[in-house]
Design a protein around this nucleic acid. Structure first.
Lengths: 144, 144
DNA sequence: CGTCTTTTCTGGAGTCAGTCAAGTTAATGA
DNA sequence: TCATTAACTTGACTGACTCCAGAAAAGACG
């Protein structure tokens, strides 16, 4: 788990000013991967006291733009954020409870970039979402 | 292009009642693949006159649930619908203009279902979104 | 064809994530 | 330590989508 000074370094590296809300948001996302904006706001407020939701939205956008966070939003879900960036991993989403887990890319390290017919598009990223049922929900369904 | 009676057959096949708005929505989506709800409402109203947005939302949900339409919602975009269902194809989305094109699955007919580590999830579908730049935007960027 | 039941449609109010705008505060760098 | 900006606060607002209750229409059956 990175420390506050690690976060500070990350912010400076991205030429972003170091502020308490930013550190708090970074740390909240590291602690709660795949958290939605609302719970991030909650966690940040637990640490810092009053922080406007606007600030959190701004920070999330700034950090996402800087590549320190990644925004994911599976269908039917609100935006979620995670701190694993740059390793091209994907996600499994549970259809019944919405749980999200990370999945490393199945094909290789710069993968999945082969569309069978790209229509002339210049493709720079392939995003994969696996849909299914998580272990808990599978068990719950079986026992009912 | 399917005709009104084809749509009627599709609806009956899904044991849905045949109504004018449903036919109109089905035909609108067939004519405008990847259209968002708002433009679908527009097209439907051109054909039928006044139709409530609620009716269109209901119809879209009913048809999606019946498997006659598929709902897609790339990040940063509102919900869009398309009529190609059941053939497991994917999409390329242009980062700059939001254009969407279809891409057949690169791997095979029941593909991409292999996650490297599924965390115990029972996976039933893999959804792939390719991100890139469409030919128009590529040209525009190059010439600027 | 006429009645009955079920489903769908209308119109309007409501919800919720996220955005805009204006003014204040604080981090940075000379 | 002061000026310059970037970041934060407050509060109103937008836009996609949903909920609700009553009216209308479609299909079933005699």
């Amino acid at each position: 788990m990175p420390t506050a000074s690690d976060f500070e370094r990350m912010l400076r590296g991205a030429s972003l000013r170091v502020t308490a809300p930013r550190i708090a948001v970074l740390s909240a996302v590291h602690l709660h991967p795949h958290a939605d904006t609302d719970s991030i706001i909650g966690v940040v407020r637990q640490n810092l006291g009053a922080v406007s939701h606007q600030a959190v939205y701004d920070v999330l956008r700034a950090l996402t733009g800087a590549g320190l966070l990644r925004r994911i939003e599976p269908q039917g879900s609100v935006a979620r954020y995670e701190a694993r960036v740059g390793d091209n991993h994907h996600h499994v989403v549970c259809r019944s409870c919405g749980a999200i887990a990370d999945v490393d890319c199945a094909v290789g390290h710069a993968p999945c970039l082969d569309a069978s017919d790209d229509h002339g598009f210049v493709i720079d990223e392939a995003e994969v979402i696996y849909w299914g049922t998580c272990p808990e929900c599978t068990t719950a369904a079986r026992s009912s």
